[in-house]
């Protein structure tokens, strides 16, 4: 389990030390004393739409012919304890707690039987969306899904070897401490190995590429000031706060 934090003018690798963090140089600090960066610098970011059966039903989608994959840019990514802006003119902005799978080896034409050998590890993703901006061209359009601060990753990168059964992890999202979303990776429509097989069948995956595997049902609107915590068994808790336009100098 390791993270990346900024502290005292430099970027450090960090590991958990009880409820504090130990920097690689030996200093131990409180979680709030450091600035949390993403635990690794992501390469290509893939995200899955409607990859939990119940969530697909919630959004009234029928069975899919192939996984609904879209791509996200590096500019949308922030770390643990960051802030994500909620524009004042929107009615429905929601979190999406997701298991993020980090690729560890170049993958080309990989079979699902071998696919898990290409996984370096896992982290938690909170992939925000703003429904108000949804348009029906190249869905989900980037104004919904590639906003600054809209892809939260962390706090830790966890080695694949330290996750005994990735196909039975519970995901939970709390808004201001209240449980709102709950699901389990056993309910993925397209599993991790199949996703790696699918993607590597037409493109080359590289170390650092990350697959956000989709979110279960239980999405609700969040408002300015809300604290959103995404939790996955064995991976930790990823905290984010919803910020106002005013905080970003917008009136």
């Amino acid at each position: 389990m390791r993270g990346r934090v900024a502290y005292a003018g430099a970027i450090h690798e960090a590991t958990p030390e009880g409820d504090r963090v130990r920097l690689a140089d030996g200093r131990v600090r409180n979680e709030h004393e450091v600035v949390w960066l993403t635990p690794f610098e992501p390469g290509t970011i893939f995200a899955l739409g409607l990859n939990y059966a119940e969530h697909a039903k919630e959004l009234q989608f029928s069975k899919q012919e192939e996984p609904l994959v879209f791509l996200k840019g590096p500019g949308s990514v922030i770390g643990h304890r960051g802030a994500t802006r909620r524009p004042a003119d929107v009615a429905f902005m929601h979190y999406e707690c997701e298991l993020a799978v980090v690729i560890g080896r170049t993958a080309q034409g990989v079979s699902r039987a071998d696919a898990m050998q290409y996984v370096a590890g896992y982290t938690i993703a909170n992939d925000y969306a703003i429904r108000d901006y949804l348009e029906n061209y190249y869905r989900p359009n980037l104004r919904v899904k590639n906003r600054d601060g809209g892809t939260v990753l962390g706090p830790w990168f966890v080695d694949a070897a330290d996750v005994p059964n990735v196909n039975a992890l519970e995901l939970r999202t709390y808004v201001n401490g209240e449980l709102k979303q709950r699901g389990n990776t056993r309910d993925l429509v397209t599993g991790i190995a199949e996703l790696i097989e699918y993607l590597s069948s037409f493109m080359t995956l590289a170390p650092g590429d990350v697959i956000l595997t989709g979110t279960p049902d239980g999405i609700v609107n969040v408002n300015v000031g809300d604290e959103v915590t995404c939790e996955i068994d064995g991976l930790g808790r990823l905290v984010n706060t919803i910020a106002s336009d005013a905080e970003f100098g917008r009136s």
Partner: peptide, 17 residues
């Protein structure tokens, strides 16, 4: 399935591969 003309720019990523 479009229902309305586009408003914001329509973009997509060309990944590093």
């Amino acid at each position: 399935p479009y229902l309305a003309p586009p408003r914001a720019p329509i973009l997509y990523l060309k990944p590093r591969n």
